[in-house]
Simulated assay, not measured.
Amino acid sequence: MPSEQDLRTKIESGLPDLHNLIVTDISNGCGQSFDVVVISNTFEGKNKLQRSRQINNLLKQEIAQIHAFSCKCYTEAEWSKVVV
């Protein structure tokens, strides 16, 4: 099973211009469900589907091993409005 650190490392190495990354194991540590928030200006000009696909492609092998995966992708400007 992949860990929070496994997902974090894969995203950090594969996504340029990463501003912030929040990876949370929401399955009480058993590695079956993850919630991920990615903040990067790489997402500028991309819609939600394109953003999600970019992260899903990075984590293709890890996602195949887990039960549930949720990912929210924001640019820095969008994130600043979310965390007011």
Rank of each mutant, 00 (worst) to 15 (best):
F69Q: 11
T9P: 03
V23K: 00
Q54D: 09
P16N: 04
F69N: 10
V84M: 15
N56S: 07
S3E: 14
N28Y: 15
E4N: 15
D17I: 06
A68Q: 15
N56R: 10
I63G: 05
Q32M: 13
E44I: 10
L58E: 01
Y74P: 02
G31Q: 08
V38W: 00
K46T: 14
C73Q: 13
D25K: 13
W79V: 00
E12H: 05
D17M: 07
G14S: 04
G29A: 05
N57W: 00
L7H: 10
G45E: 15
F69G: 07
S27V: 07
I39N: 10
H19M: 13
N28S: 14
V37N: 05
S40W: 05
F43W: 02
N41R: 08
G14P: 03
P2L: 15
A68N: 15
Q50D: 08
W79I: 00
H67F: 12
E62D: 08
M1R: 15
G14A: 03
F43R: 04
C73E: 07
L59R: 07
C71V: 15
S52Q: 14
R53M: 11
I11D: 01
G31M: 10
S52I: 09
N20M: 07
S40T: 06
K60Y: 03
N56V: 03
N28P: 10
K46L: 13
K81D: 01
E44H: 11
F69H: 11
R53S: 09
L21N: 03
I22A: 06
I55S: 04
N28L: 14
S70H: 15
K10C: 10
G14I: 00
N41D: 12
E4M: 10
Q32G: 15
F34N: 02
H67L: 12
S40F: 06
T24K: 15
A77T: 11
I22Y: 09
T42F: 08
I66F: 11
C71H: 06
N41E: 02
N28G: 12
Q32A: 14
Y74I: 01
G14D: 02
Q61Y: 11
I22G: 00
N57Y: 01
V23A: 03
S13V: 01
T24D: 13
S27N: 13
K48E: 06
I66E: 05
T42W: 05
N47Y: 05
S70R: 13
R51N: 03
L7D: 06
L18K: 00
I55R: 02
H19D: 12
C30W: 12
S52R: 12
S33L: 14
S33T: 11
E44D: 12
L58K: 01
I66T: 08
L59W: 04
L7E: 09
Q65M: 09
V37G: 04
K10Q: 13
N47I: 01
I26C: 09
